[in-house]
Design a protein around this nucleic acid. Structure first.
Lengths: 186, 186
DNA sequence: AAGTTTGTTAAATTTTTTTTTAACGTATTG
DNA sequence: CAATACGTTAAAAAAAAATTTAACAAACTT
């Protein structure tokens, strides 16, 4: 085993290990491994990056970088920064994982809540018609009632999810679950 | 507008609306719309389903149902149930969204925590070599130190995420955020 | 104003994923 | 034990997504 690795190479190895792990776990955020890799790369840059730098670093085309960076902006993991005296757009990775976590999940969960609660409202109004109608077969009514009840129960979950989002956005959650700066004894 | 829609058709419409919303929002759970649609379909069945029923309901092939159902099992949204006197396997949708939420996110988040913390441990050990080595360029050392510090900070997030998972698995979170059976005044 | 630079969109290509048909192995039934 | 039913894997086909090259439009330079 070579003991005389160049320090620059060691740093490079260290970064690659973390970049790979990031790229692998970012599927939860709905991005492909190459987009995850782009984020990981930016994560280790200590200055804003241009599209050309990204292209050179990852060996991919510029339009590819352009669309990837936009996807990363969509999930709030990358921000465009303005730098005086440069024509090129510059982008910086969001390095505070708390912020990306909050932005991403609150957005996704609220979308889940809103879309589903809307659908449930429409569905329930239709089911109510069946339930309240005269001369409808009792078995059919029963079916509508069961569905209605099931939807009512699911609303409990969506309301809870909404509260979870609220507690994250207001940062109340951090009173319940504090951010521990120090490592707990292993 | 036709006032005399068949009650059965109304129920069908109600279900379809919800199934569509479910299929649309299930992308967060990393499944395709057709798998989401399968889950939605099962969600409105009040008895376990066989692969053949699924195939007929969705108009897709049986192998497709087989693999889709497995994916749904992976994310704990569908369970195989045993029914006496039937050769066919039967599957039932998990209808308690709290349970699927808990299982899914705890699993994904723990994977994120473990993979990344492992990578960070390896990376930090490499960076430490650079930092502690003799006769290494000061600028290179500085770089290693910055990376090291950044990784240290990210560990705060992963530890927090681990605590979040813990609080969900122990259900402590429900003391902080109770499940409200009743609707709050709109 | 002509010529560059920059980022994006469009079209074409490649790769990956999804879906289907076909084939197979195991178990069950008569 | 032959015949059938069931679920899965394998191979093929179809569809979708990612990536690239080409083309374009806006902004900047000179």
């Amino acid at each position: 085993m070579p003991e005389d690795i160049q320090p620059e190479a060691l740093i490079e190895q260290a970064r690659d290990i973390v970049i790979n792990a990031i790229a692998e776990t970012m599927d939860l955020y709905g991005v492909t491994p190459s987009i995850g890799r782009l984020y990981g790369t930016m994560y280790f840059k200590h200055h804003p990056m241009t599209l050309d730098e990204m292209k050179d670093d990852l060996g991919m085309s510029k339009p590819s970088m352009s669309t990837s960076v936009r996807k990363l902006q969509d999930i709030h993991m990358v921000q465009k920064v303005w730098q005086k005296g440069s024509r090129k757009d510059k982008y910086m990775a969001e390095k505070n994982f708390f912020r990306s976590f909050i932005k991403f999940f609150c957005k996704k969960w609220m979308r889940e809540v809103n879309l589903n609660l809307e659908a449930i409202a429409m569905a329930e109004s239709k089911l109510k018609k069946v339930i309240e109608a005269q001369d409808v077969d009792e078995d059919v009514k029963k079916e509508a009632e069961i569905d209605f009840q099931q939807l009512e129960e699911s609303k409990v979950y969506y309301r809870w999810l909404k509260q979870l989002v609220r507690s994250i956005e207001t940062e109340e959650i951090f009173e319940f679950l504090p951010v521990n700066q120090e490592e707990i004894e292993p």
